[in-house]
Measured scan of single mutants.
Amino acid sequence: LPHTAVCLVCGEAGKEDTVEEEEGKFNLMLMECSICNEIIHPGCLKIKESEGVVNDELPNCWECPKC
């Protein structure tokens, strides 16, 4: 993702460097949905019932829970 990318919900950049544990890092890193192209911190999504499908081949790419 470009350095200028920010979260659609909170308007902040990736914050994964501020935590140690892997789950915390994931919730604070910016992810781009391969379907709707929205860039968001997974932790900013209010959807709890399902998780997005992470694409292991492309960094910061997933199918968000909304899609």
Results as ranks from 00 to 15, higher is better:
5 A>M: 14
65 P>A: 08
6 V>E: 04
3 H>V: 15
56 D>T: 13
60 N>P: 09
29 M>D: 03
32 E>W: 06
14 G>W: 02
35 I>E: 04
64 C>Y: 01
63 E>F: 04
61 C>E: 09
23 E>F: 10
60 N>T: 09
26 F>S: 05
62 W>A: 03
42 P>K: 05
53 V>D: 10
35 I>W: 02
23 E>H: 07
11 G>P: 02
56 D>E: 10
53 V>K: 08
6 V>H: 15
40 I>P: 01
33 C>T: 01
40 I>H: 13
43 G>H: 04
38 E>S: 10
36 C>Q: 01
29 M>T: 05
67 C>S: 00
39 I>H: 15
29 M>E: 04
54 V>M: 08
56 D>K: 14
58 L>M: 14
16 E>R: 08
31 M>P: 01
15 K>H: 02
19 V>N: 02
55 N>F: 03
47 I>T: 13
49 E>Y: 07
16 E>Q: 12
61 C>L: 11
3 H>S: 10
55 N>E: 08
46 K>G: 14
20 E>R: 12
5 A>T: 14
25 K>R: 05
60 N>V: 05
66 K>S: 05
44 C>H: 07
39 I>P: 10
55 N>T: 09
39 I>K: 11
34 S>G: 09
62 W>G: 01
15 K>V: 03
63 E>Q: 08
6 V>R: 05
54 V>F: 14
3 H>K: 15
43 G>E: 07
67 C>W: 00
30 L>I: 04
13 A>L: 10
58 L>Q: 09
55 N>V: 06
6 V>I: 14
58 L>K: 14
56 D>W: 04
5 A>N: 10
16 E>W: 02
12 E>K: 08
32 E>T: 12
64 C>Q: 02
24 G>I: 10
63 E>N: 06
48 K>V: 06
27 N>R: 11
26 F>W: 06
27 N>F: 06
6 V>W: 01
19 V>A: 10
46 K>L: 12
36 C>H: 00
41 H>M: 00
1 L>D: 13
49 E>S: 10
14 G>S: 11
14 G>P: 08
43 G>L: 03
21 E>V: 13
1 L>F: 15
43 G>V: 05
3 H>W: 02
22 E>C: 06
40 I>L: 08
59 P>S: 10
17 D>T: 07
9 V>Q: 02
18 T>E: 03
51 E>N: 15
1 L>E: 06
22 E>A: 12
52 G>C: 10
65 P>K: 06
5 A>L: 11
